[in-house]
């Protein structure tokens, strides 16, 4: 697994889960989650980082992504969250 893929579908969540609200996300700062298809064809659900969640029209199905693991602590200890960000060429 090379950790590269493309965005299959996504959402920008303004009314988040209690854990995400604790991390500072919300109406003014939505977060993006989506379905990513890896180059190896497997699909995963993941957080999508580095996109303009207040302007979802700028995020497009099919955009190339690369893996970007997050370490997050919403109050119950640090944990690793599967995330992707736009693929940087080269």
């Amino acid at each position: 697994m090379e950790g590269r893929g493309k965005l299959v579908a996504f959402t920008c969540i303004a009314i988040g889960t209690p854990a995400m609200l604790k991390l500072g996300y919300g109406r003014e700062n939505p977060y993006c989650t989506g379905v990513v298809e890896l180059e190896e064809k497997a699909r995963v659900v993941a957080r999508i980082q580095g996109v303009d969640t207040r302007n979802p029209g700028t995020i497009s199905v099919g955009m190339p992504l690369q893996v970007d693991f997050l370490e997050e602590d919403s109050g119950s200890g640090s944990r690793t969250v599967l995330a992707f960000k736009p693929l940087v060429a080269g």
């Binding site: 579908a9 996504f10 959402t11 920008c12 969540i13 009314i15 988040g16 889960t17 854990a19 995400m20 996300y25 977060y31 989650t33 989506g34 379905v35 659900v45 993941a46 957080r47 969250v81 599967l82 995330a83």
Partner: peptide, 12 residues
């Protein structure tokens, strides 16, 4: 685990 809500699932 990645923060999906039900509206988020259906938005996707």
């Amino acid at each position: 685990e990645v923060g999906f809500t039900f509206p988020g699932v259906f938005g996707t």
